[in-house]
Nucleic acid binder design. Structure first.
Length: 769
DNA sequence: TCACAGTGACTTTTT
DNA sequence: GTCACTGTGA
């Protein structure tokens, strides 16, 4: 595309950011300010106007979706951008490691463990750990890696001062290397190590990439910052884009300091602010701004609404989450009657668990919806089984994968036998240390070879089961190796795999399983997994066979070779956001606030604005600021209309609890928002500036605002109430005994019970007369 | 070794 | 209320 055309649509700040050259550049891009447009235009401009080689541009993002969108948009402006490297941090790390596997001390066929796999590995490595302890340890190890701390790092104590932790971490690393696997943190950490320990690799990378850009820079962690410093040489043009107000991944190690101190770390940095918002009407931005301006640690930025004035956001107080979901349904239905498409609407919530109520309600009312971000497909048992089998074929040392499928379907190989095999594999490994980089299929440390070694020591039943298993794995490996040599040209496909949408169409046109698909199909069958899950289907009426077929289909995008298999597994591990298949395009979006980043909707409802839910009750200090930024992200998704809902009571883990409005609601000035429904007294007091001593109380909506238990008059005889377990009842007696306030309640069911209200805040609910 | 039942823990957010 | 782990008995 002609540069004049794409440059002419930019505002002066965007233009300046696109044509900026020389010094490092920090673009502070507010929500809806055209950030992606700037990055993609810049890529196009560098290639088309400045003669930069497409291959020498590296652009890193945090999500695969963002990477795809960036590639898509940049390519539309400049077709050569297709050859640029646009990846997530993690997939870039994997890319770098596979190309320098030997130097990094890895097999280029390494597979990637998710948290679940890591937990399994650790609990097998240290049987003394309970599942919970293993889980906590894996979590802390991941944090440590976010900060680039190895097991011996002097600052490791910041994560956990317990000396045992360093030991557990160290053992975990050892076992992970033995199995030939990497975890997510390694995909950043090991490239940093590689680049710092091997200057020749570093200079090669630095001369390969003359331009390095990072999107969503506010979400980068310390390790990613280290990686960035290692990639960027003295002559690299570095450009990072981000918004400190949208930093919402601190909990997994994102370091806002990276963006706050960028200019200090890279001297000469120029800062360009994009503050013109093209997405939302002014009143929506006011609410977002009022909330986020309560944060202290921010660079500061004021969004200007280019779209001007519009409908004032609405805050709705509701009794409980059932009312909340039916309110949302009605609101959406009403707009539908006026011709508004379902897809205009997004219902946002803090935690995934909250989606359930909306799903039930919408199903009931026949409102089409889609839940974004449920990665259920790859978490299904049958899919995990098939993937574990594939992983074992690719990497014979993958202990977790081996344990998962060696006895599935049952082959008489229980944990005892499994332990024996793993021990044997480790024995061989220690007796004949081989250069790790030289591991290959026929390697003796392979769990399959180890299995063969111990066959003699097994019972008859286990022996035949294990022999059969060995045979299956080996014939699959043979098949893969042979296919590799007879390889038809599948480059068309793997190119298409990048643009997955086109690719699946391409594949559907062809008949039969092609590429890696025929291999996966074969594996699913010969492993016995298909028959096993078919049986389960009959019992539980599940969709397992269909899911396995779907997996086979997904594999058709990859060539039938070991490399193809590894690529397939990596893709699945790093991008679980399944192509949004045959989703009804006109449907309401149900989504967590975290997942909305980068998205926009004409009409947005942010639900569950209650203290304890949003923000979560354990949040304070910096964490609370992060929750506030999350609120900011949620609000700024809305283009035309914004609704906030807050419930007086909510059922959580099967219990009903009173809820107080989210403190963020108090930060919105009364003029900025229209209030519907019965606002709790605490809210009215706070908002009109009346001091309230009732903070932290849990009065029900409309009832007295004082703390329960101290105010005996609330629990007077004659009042109706609701109890979690016993249902509705009426207070028949209310008195003090030994200084304790006691009430007697007669329930509708006929029973009578005594309570001390003070201790029953969570289960006893006063009901309006 | 497996199937079942009872127990307990648990709910952020994700590459 | 749900899921997953643990322990028991066959």
């Amino acid at each position: 595309m002609n540069a004049d055309r794409y440059l002419s649509v930019l505002n002066p700040e965007q233009y300046a950011a696109v044509v900026h050259e020389g010094s490092p550049l920090l673009i502070l891009a507010g929500a809806g300010s055209g950030k992606t447009r700037v990055i993609t235009t810049k890529i196009a401009w560098l290639i088309g106007e400045k003669g930069v080689e497409p291959e020498s541009i590296l652009a890193v993002t945090f999500t695969n979706k963002a990477a795809r969108e960036m590639l898509d948009r940049a390519t539309r402006l400049e077709s050569r951008a297709e050859r640029s490297v646009l990846r997530t941090f993690h997939s870039f790390g994997a890319w770098l490691l596979r190309r320098n596997a030997a130097l990094a001390g890895l097999d280029s066929g390494f597979t990637i463990y998710d948290d679940d796999d890591a937990k399994t590995l650790l609990s097998k490595a240290i049987p003394a750990l309970t599942r919970q302890q293993a889980s906590a340890a894996v979590h802390k190890i991941a944090r440590a890696k976010d900060y680039c701390y190895g097991p011996n790092h002097p600052l490791l104590a910041e994560i956990d001062p317990d000396p045992d932790f360093a030991e557990v971490y160290s053992l975990y690393e050892k076992r992970l290397r033995e199995t030939g696997n990497l975890d997510f943190g390694d995909l950043i950490l090991l490239p940093v190590k590689l680049l710092t320990e091997h200057p020749e690799v570093r200079s090669r990378i630095q001369s390969r990439f003359s331009v390095v850009m990072v999107d969503e820079y506010q979400d980068s962690n310390s390790a990613q910052f280290e990686l960035l410093k290692a990639i960027a040489g003295p002559s690299t043009y570095l450009c990072v884009v981000g918004d400190d107000d949208q930093s919402i991944y601190r909990f997994r190690g994102a370091e806002v300091q990276n963006i706050l101190t960028f200019a200090d770390c890279f001297p000469g940095t120029q800062i360009i602010r994009l503050e013109r918002n093209y997405r939302s009407y002014a009143p929506i931005l006011s609410v977002a701004d009022e909330v986020v301006s309560h944060n202290e640690g921010r660079l500061g930025k004021t969004l200007v609404a280019e779209r001007g004035n519009g409908k004032k956001p609405v805050l709705v107080f509701l009794g409980n989450q059932d009312e909340e979901s039916s309110f949302c349904a009605e609101l959406i239905n009403e707009s539908r009657k006026k011709g508004c498409p379902w897809s205009d609407w997004a219902v946002l919530y803090r935690t995934n668990a909250q989606s359930l109520g909306f799903e039930t309600e919408f199903l009931h009312r026949k409102i089409p919806y889609k839940v974004v971000g449920t990665l259920k497909f790859y978490e299904r048992e049958e899919i995990k089984d098939a993937l574990a089998f594939l992983a074992l074929v690719a990497n014979g040392r993958d202990e977790v994968a081996f344990r998962r499928i060696v006895n599935k379907p049952a082959r008489g190989l229980g944990e005892v036998t499994q332990d024996k095999i793993v021990a044997e594999a480790r024995r061989i490994l220690f007796e004949s240390p081989i250069e790790t980089s030289e591991f290959s299929f026929d390697d003796k440390t392979d769990l399959v070879s180890a299995s063969r070694n111990i066959l003699g020591s097994l019972s008859k039943k286990a022996k035949s089961g294990l022999s059969e298993f060995i045979h299956v794995v080996e014939s699959l490996r043979l098949k893969l190796d042979h296919a590799g040599s007879l390889l038809v040209d599948t480059s068309e496909l793997s190119q298409a795999a990048i643009n997955s949408e086109d690719a699946s169409k391409l594949v559907k046109k062809r008949k039969g399983a092609i590429g890696l698909a025929s291999f996966v199909e074969n594996l699913v069958e010969s492993s016995g997994l298909l028959a096993y899950h078919q049986g389960q289907d009959e019992i539980a009426g599940t969709q397992r066979v269909a899911n396995l077929e779907e997996l086979v289909n997904a594999a058709s995008l990859y060539p039938m070779s070991r490399e193809g298999l590894i690529e397939f597994l990596e893709h699945i591990e790093l991008d679980r956001s399944m192509s949004e298949e045959e989703d009804n395009p006109d449907s309401v979006t149900l989504i967590t606030i975290h997942n909305t980043k980068g998205l926009e909707f004409p009409r947005v409802i942010i639900t569950g604005l209650e203290s304890g839910i949003f923000p979560r009750d354990d949040k304070k200090g910096d964490d609370l600021e992060e929750e506030r930024r999350l609120m900011y992200v949620g609000c700024t998704r809305a283009m035309d209309e914004l609704y906030l809902t807050s419930c007086g009571a909510r059922r959580l883990y099967g219990r009903t609890s009173f809820m107080e409005p989210s403190p963020f609601l108090f930060e919105i000035s009364p003029e900025s928002i229209e209030v519907l429904g019965r606002a709790p007294r605490s809210f009215q007091n706070r908002r009109t500036g009346v001091s309230s001593s009732a903070t932290g109380s849990s009065g029900s909506p409309g009832s007295s605002g004082s703390a329960p238990g101290t105010d005996t008059s609330r629990w007077r005889a004659g009042r109706k109430l609701f109890h979690d377990e016993y249902g509705y009842g009426i207070i028949t007696k209310s008195f003090n005994s030994d200084g304790e306030h006691i009430i007697v309640v007669r329930f509708e069911t006929g029973g009578e019970k005594r309570f001390m209200p003070k201790y029953q805040e969570r289960s006893l609910l006063l009901v309006e007369d």
